[in-house]
Design a protein around this nucleic acid. Structure first.
Lengths: 359, 359
DNA sequence: GCCCGCGATGTAAACGTTTTCATGCCTGCC
DNA sequence: GGCAGGCATGAAAACGTTTACATCGCGGGC
């Protein structure tokens, strides 16, 4: 059917070993021989069978990426960062999404098992123990942005959700907001939880009243933001600011407020979290917490690639498993009232420019 | 190192053939034997080596996805549709992006060659012949949304760019706009070209003047939309409406107009193309051309999967290669002045709901 | 001038599956 | 009671590479 290394060898009048050596230039070959082989390979349009290669070399040059979802800019940014880092190192990406629970992840792992050298997993809604059980033992794994204290075997890269949220809440407090509505994420989402904790802690530290009615449940989608904003606005004593636990929900909140004629930021402040690329282009530009989504993906990938070359560092695996926390940065824009600052966007190079470039 | 089918066979006291049969239940096995094998596999946490499997079965159960980029909601939507369709059929995705030119695509193909059963390629900027040369002969391929009349060997799924653009321009004309600014895409981008042609044709048909100064070059990014809008607004005789060739640029245009205090839609109408998920949540909600991005990906994947089971249909390949054109639909929202219609968004289920669900 | 050694190449084993074919047993029919 | 046939299982080939090892020829040092 398809042409193999044998066909090339026959045409070039050499052995398969020589063909292999030429193709990977893994050993010196006489110039004349090399040319004959190359010519033959070219003429037959030969390209090596990856499966056979992987089997023989015991490595696939691919890493698996398991995501809870693919909806929205967050995931495309994340994947973009991962792809860049992987491609630079010559690795391909085996992507599988829509895996929210441990069972889904286990199924996905089963499918790609043996076709990847390493695994990148984002599973914000899965508990530590469930995850530990679902993940393979023998494949180096990096957890992205879930429960930081993941299973001992895996590395984990997270974003400073807690710190970012406290910074944002302090920002709102500094703007004299006293009743701050919070649109939280899903109950079991680790990132959402950390952001909520950060918000609460900042309120507590400031001695501000923490009215439970001001925290409504969302789901990290625009639609959830719409409902959340509606609920907050409908309160007997509504807040003067809304802190959405991610940008998608902030987008929904902005849309709802516009719909019902509540001006942002004059009558209501809205802020988000993640600083997705579109945030600065919203109307008004969204104040958010920059996470460096692509950087998170790239960093996770880099850590994984490092782990792949390291020879599993003896048995002291647990001791060497990394726990990186990426810093976050408050980005103040028009949606929290600093209308003038947003003008800078189009005059100077915005700070977030790096997101657009090659990292 | 890793545990193989042999280990399981030894532990269960059977041959490797039997283990294989149990795992794939490809042949009847005595209940007792099956249980022993299953128990052994479970105890050893065995999972089959994909590379060996692929090699033996001559199929990888994976499809390659080659994209020009991963930035923005468009690509995450596309990938989402592809992933869903592939996952349903038990296929994995080998994703590689940032391949704009033929050389990049060829390199990407070389890397994933022999690890995939089929190929999904989006290459709007590559010419037909360059693409034909870069793509492998022996791998079923589906082209997404580039030049419809692609290489004979490959199937092609496109969106009705031309029709969508004419519909949009007619919409603007019906709103009494006579000077319509157009922010085009990159010169060599096939989709951008088709949209521009559609726009021009609609103007011509309506007998409207087609001022060349009203067409400015963009690049499908928000930033390009900002520059485009700035250029159009700066004209001696500026347009009353701006048609951006994709939504990302419309987002940029909206941001710029807000920045300089030009109200949309009162003083300027802005419309886009693609209807990315965030479009309906913008301020004002963006009038756009719905493309069904996820559906495009899903359809392409389905066509590819069909081609995989079909035995290359004799040699009449060219004759059977499909050319699907997905219809587009005008979605009118507040940014083109129909302010009241947008209220429907949060009351009734929006038309676009399907994009959020399972397709 | 002989032998040692090195450089280029070939041979064949290994990688971990699936699958064809062979084997042996048991059942049931005449 | 013998034999055909079906069913469960095992042995081994095949998939297309890489690579350790063997081989061969040739040049240089003594």
């Amino acid at each position: 059917m398809s042409i193999t290394i044998k066909d090339v060898a026959r045409l070039a009048g050499v052995s398969v070993a020589t063909v292999s050596r030429v193709i990977n230039d893994s050993a010196p070959v006489l110039a004349g021989t090399r040319d004959r082989v190359l010519a033959a390979a070219d003429r037959l349009r030969f390209s090596p069978n990856g499966a056979a290669r992987s089997l023989s070399m015991q490595r696939t040059l691919a890493i698996g990426v398991i995501l809870p979802d693919l909806y929205g800019e967050f995931f495309s940014e994340l994947l973009r960062g991962i792809d860049q880092a992987a491609q630079r190192a010559g690795y391909s990406l085996l992507v599988s999404s829509s895996h929210h629970d441990a069972r889904g992840i286990e199924a996905a792992v089963r499918v790609i098992r043996g076709r990847i050298d390493g695994l990148l997993v984002m599973a914000p809604e899965v508990t530590r123990s469930a995850l530990a059980h679902a993940l393979p033992r023998d494949v180096p794994t990096v957890l992205l942005n879930g429960r930081a204290a993941g299973s001992d075997a895996a590395h984990a890269i997270t974003v400073d959700n807690y710190g970012g949220a406290t910074a944002m809440t302090r920002h709102l407090l500094s703007l004299r907001h006293r009743r701050i509505g919070f649109i939280a994420g899903a109950v079991h989402n680790a990132d959402a939880q950390a952001r909520e904790r950060g918000h609460r802690a900042a309120l507590r530290t400031a001695g501000a009243a923490s009215d439970p009615a001001l925290v409504v449940r969302g789901d990290f989608t625009e639609r959830g933001g719409v409902s959340g904003a509606r609920a907050l606005v409908s309160l007997a004593s509504p807040p003067t600011a809304i802190f959405a636990a991610n940008d998608a929900m902030a987008v929904g909140a902005l849309a709802f407020l516009r719909e019902v004629g509540i001006d942002v930021p004059r009558r209501m402040t809205v802020v988000g979290f993640d600083d997705i690329p579109v945030a600065r282009f919203l109307n008004p530009p969204l104040t958010s917490v920059r996470v460096g989504i692509a950087a998170l993906g790239a960093r996770g990938t880099q850590v994984l690639l490092d782990a792949l070359v390291a020879p599993a560092s003896r048995s002291s695996r647990a001791a060497t498993s990394r726990r990186d926390v990426l810093p976050t940065e408050l980005v103040v824009r028009g949606s929290s009232g600093a209308a003038s600052s947003s003008a800078r966007l189009f005059l100077a190079k915005p700070q977030g420019e790096s997101l657009y470039g090659q990292e």
